[in-house]
């Protein structure tokens, strides 16, 4: 039976192949220039600068959505694979040696931060959306605090009403001792580092423990509490994931511009101080 290759797999394979061929060509060209005693560092430097400009142009494309400049997804593909290529070019340009001198160290550091943040961003963009999609209701980031507040109020109302109607404190105690921390609005860092999955299972376990001591009416309330615990888990996942998906750009973009400026300075210095042949 013929196996049909999915579009994204096909695209990834094609782009990876193209990247490999381009990378090999770059290395061969480098070797040829080296053998021909040509200033390969100068050529590779300009190629790298041009590539950096093209990579930055992706951000400009986003600002000009009305212009018929190909789809942003095409630009992203180019951005990602050219990003990989730029790492190779950077290695060739620096001849894979450790940087020395203030400008070189700054440039290398900036390049490393931009490249690394790019890889991290790529990983996050591919891994977090499916996680969010499966955790529950898709939410707008800005609306999450409102939902957190509303959910907490709903839960507290439910607990108070149950306490009054049942005359026992089982559900109230459960909330105060084990669940109140779960429903407390958390900072994004706490959402990220607080192991939301573990918190979810712990909260559900605590509800299960109380169930054996409660009556039929309270079972219904506990079921509602379980649903609310899951909703809060979703809120934590959405908040943490969306923060990361936005946050990495706050590293990647400013450092890209810093890198670009420093690169221009480096290019200017290189041109001024390169001995003419």
């Amino acid at each position: 039976m013929a196996v049909s290759i999915k579009f994204f797999v096909k695209r990834r394979l094609a782009n990876a192949a193209l990247l490999l061929v381009t990378g090999v060509l770059c290395v061969l060209l480098w070797r040829t220039l080296e053998a021909a005693l040509r200033p390969q560092a100068l050529y590779s430097g300009f190629a790298l600068l041009l590539l950096l400009l093209l990579l930055t142009a992706f951000n400009a494309r986003k600002k000009l959505p009305f212009l018929p400049l190909l789809r942003a997804s095409h630009w992203l593909q180019f951005h990602v694979y050219s990003g990989f290529l730029s790492v190779l070019l950077y290695g060739l340009h620096t001849e894979f040696r450790f940087p020395s001198g203030t400008l070189e160290i700054s440039l290398s550091l900036l390049f490393a931060i931009v490249a690394l943040s790019g890889f991290v961003g790529l990983y996050l963009s591919r891994s977090l959306p499916p996680l969010m999609a499966r955790s529950g209701e898709p939410l707008t980031y800005e609306a999450i605090p409102k939902f957190e507040f509303r959910l907490r109020r709903e839960v507290e109302d439910l607990v108070q009403t149950t306490e009054k109607s049942s005359g026992t404190s089982a559900v109230g105690d459960l909330y105060l001792q084990h669940l109140s921390a779960h429903f407390k609005p958390r900072s994004v860092w706490a959402s990220l580092l607080g192991k939301p999955k573990k918190m979810l299972s712990r909260a559900l376990e605590n509800i299960d423990k109380v169930q054996r001591y409660t009556g039929e009416d309270e079972h219904e309330v506990l079921e509602k509490l379980r649903a609310c615990v899951r909703q809060k888990h979703n809120l934590d996942i959405q908040k943490g994931s969306q923060f990361l998906l936005r946050g990495w750009l706050f590293v990647h973009i400013p450092f890209t511009y810093s890198l670009l400026i420093t690169s221009f300075a480096h290019a200017w210095i290189a041109l001024v101080y390169t001995p003419s042949r």
């Binding site: 986003k62 600002k63 000009l64 959505p65 009305f66 942003a72 996050l124 963009s125 977090l128 959306p129 499916p130 969010m132 999609a133 898709p138 707008t140 980031y141 969306q242 998906l245 936005r246």
Partner: peptide
Amino acid sequence: LDRCTRCDDCVRACASTHDGNPRFIR
């Protein structure tokens, strides 16, 4: 939703092409 990173580039693009007023809600 498996691919959407909630970046809102779509909403911004919509706003840009409609004098700053987006014409849909994500």
